[in-house]
């Protein structure tokens, strides 16, 4: 029963070793879906290429459904899965800053590493930028710390927040995604993709 590491089915070194292979799968999927091209990535914000929308939401939904079914079959104990904690303000403000970085730089950290791996120079520069950004954060940490720690809401699940079952929530996300995919494909027809 999973997670394997929690139940001592694998050792922590094996866990690190497997992380490498999970990374390979992650990188391979990102690159082969076209996430190594910044102009393809930002296409979602101009409507000419919505591959980000499709891959991102299909991915999130697949993982959500997978986890719930795994739990249903007793293959995984969801209480031991890491739930990202919610610190309201830092999440919102951090997300806004990341959004600005996304539209200016054309990558996010994961995709920039993929693109750097196939020789995109803009991606390599973007990675350098990320290191500088992180360094600014770690050096000025005492300044941001109050914001960083503000409004802690615990390792809160969104379905608990809305007081519905996780299955219902996933179903709602699927409906929303189906509509977004439909709009996305409509936009791709409407806005002509530049050659890149």
């Amino acid at each position: 029963m999973g997670p394997l590491i929690v139940n001592d089915i694998i050792s922590s070194n094996t866990n690190l070793f497997l992380a490498f292979f999970i990374g390979i799968a992650f990188g391979f999927v990102l690159e082969s879906s076209g996430f190594s091209s910044s102009r393809k990535l930002v296409g979602v914000f101009y409507g000419y290429d919505t591959v980000v929308l499709k891959v991102f939401f299909t991915g999130a939904i697949t993982a959500m459904i997978g986890l719930l079914f795994f739990s249903l079959f007793g293959w995984i104990d969801l209480t031991y899965i890491y739930i990202n904690p919610t610190y309201l303000w830092s999440t919102i403000i951090g997300g806004v800053i990341m959004g600005a970085g996304f539209i200016l730089g054309g990558f996010c950290p994961g995709t920039s590493v993929c693109a750097a791996a196939i020789g995109k120079i803009d991606a390599i520069i973007f990675v350098v930028g990320i290191f500088i950004g992180i360094f600014i954060f770690t050096e000025g940490y005492p300044i941001w710390k109050p914001l960083y720690m503000a409004e802690f809401m615990g390792n809160l699940k969104i379905n608990t927040f809305f007081n519905i079952s996780s299955g219902t929530l996933v179903m709602l996300v699927i409906f929303a995604a189906a509509v977004m995919f439909w709009i996305g494909e409509w936009a791709e027809k409407k806005f002509k993709a530049p050659k890149y």
Binding site: F26, S38, F56, G59, A60, A63, M64, N84, P85, Y87, S90, T91, I93, G94, G95, V96, I97, M98, G99, A100, G101, F102, I103, L104, G105, G106, F107, C108, P109, G110, T111, S112, D122, A123, I125, F126, V127, V128, G129, I130, F131, I132, G133, I134, F135, I136, F137, T138, W144, L147, Y148, V173
Partner: peptide, 27 residues
């Protein structure tokens, strides 16, 4: 690209994770 990287790097720390770690895995 450099400017975007700096913003993304900073934001990812403040927001406790980037598009992969916070948004995708979190969702």
């Amino acid at each position: 690209a450099l400017l975007g990287g700096v913003l993304f790097g900073f934001g990812s720390q403040l927001g406790r994770g980037c598009t992969s770690g916070s948004a995708l895995s979190g969702m």
